[in-house]
Simulated scan of single mutants.
Amino acid sequence: MRADHLVRARELLAAHPVVDGHNDLPWALREQVRYDLGKRDIATDQSADLHTDLPRLREGGVGAQFWSVYVRSDLAGDDAVSATLEQIDVVRRLAERYPADLRLAFTADDMEAARAEGRIASLMGAEGGHSINCSLATLRALHRLGVRYMTLTHNDNIPWADSATDEPAAGGLTRFGEEVVREMNRVGMLVDLSHVSADTMRDALRVSEAPVIFSHSSARAVCDHPRNIPDDVLARLAAGGGVAMATFVPKFILPEAIAWTRAADENMRANGLHPLDTTAVGMAVHRAFEAANPRPRATVATVADHLDHMREVAGVDHVGLGGDYDGTAFTPEGLSDVSGYPNLIAELLRRGWSDSDLAKLTWQNAVRVLRAAEDVAGELSARRGPSIATIDELDG
């Protein structure tokens, strides 16, 4: 990587910082310190067990972060709702604790205001429809609390939508699932299609009246993993004005990493741990497995290959970045934590991406898609009131 490309990358990010679509710091704080922010001060404690802290966000040129208020899909019903509320609470507490660095953001205008102030816009995205427990009223409540996207599923199916990594049950979205999408459009919550099956993707694109996003997914044509986006979906996403935010997770972007990751996950289960365990114990088990079984290495170039393909299929107006930091045990070389974004921008400069292309990738596309969702919500809410449909009524 040429030094002048890296210098130019940093200059570009100063003007057009990264909007990252997905970061699991809230869940890592839950797992590691039970939300005791004094035990993990992200202003001063650059823990080896985290990918994210304020100095590294600044170094990486991050100007807006969608914090995932994820809860594991083995939590269900009211337990999932309560855990989601706890996740929302810690994002708000972080913003209160670090007001010079973080500003809660609920609109595209808030994002622009945070950038003008030199603060990092802090938005929230719920990861998995289990967080609403089949309740449209709960969906609306999460939106009022600040959640601005919901990933329709996580790793497991839910009663109204199929996941990419579970056996098909609904064949995409059920009638209630379609109603969830319509209500998300009406309130202005972005429909996030990361983690969902290809049939669910296509159903959501058919139903949604607002642009949709993939908060952390890459190109299936480059790495054939069900978590990635097929080309026909990328094309339909672009036609609807959406944004696909490429992820950095090696097992989703590097074909050689798929089998290795399966073995690593089995090792975690053999040790009585969930594969997504981000506690100190979980990370130690991951590191020990890697020491004994050297993993295939994704690099900055691996991510750039996905972005090149996504730009070719969907167009530069429809690509973004969603690293999934603190939601993955392993990261690509050059993108080991949130400070690494300049390395990726430098690689894209080397490949001929223009300054205007990169401004769209890092900042403009994500801001535009949230603003578009807000505009659609204004139009729809003027025409129809809150849906009171139930899953029993529509799918029973």
Rank of each mutant, 00 (worst) to 15 (best):
G118D: 11
W160Q: 08
L394T: 11
N228P: 07
N343P: 04
R236W: 04
E266W: 04
Q87P: 03
L152Q: 05
G352D: 07
G334S: 06
P17K: 01
L237M: 15
V196R: 05
A204H: 05
A198W: 12
E256Y: 09
L142D: 06
A382Q: 13
H216C: 14
A43D: 09
M310E: 07
G334N: 02
L335V: 02
D308E: 15
R269K: 15
A280E: 15
E312H: 14
P26H: 13
D101S: 13
E183L: 10
D49I: 10
S135T: 03
D395W: 12
A100F: 04
H318V: 06
T331H: 08
L361S: 01
I345Y: 03
L104D: 07
V18H: 00
K39H: 10
S163K: 00
A9I: 07
R119Y: 09
V91W: 09
V19Q: 02
G172A: 14
M310Y: 04
T151H: 00
A114M: 12
V338M: 08
A329H: 10
V196S: 07
F248C: 06
D308S: 14
W160T: 03
D45P: 01
A161P: 00
P211T: 08
V91I: 12
D337C: 12
P386C: 09
V249C: 11
A359V: 10
D355G: 03
A141Q: 12
Y149K: 08
G21C: 12
D357C: 08
L12S: 00
S339A: 15
G241H: 10
V281M: 08
L6K: 13
T153I: 04
Y341Q: 07
G242V: 12
F106A: 12
A9W: 01
L136E: 03
E167C: 00
R140A: 08
V285C: 01
H306I: 01
L6Y: 09
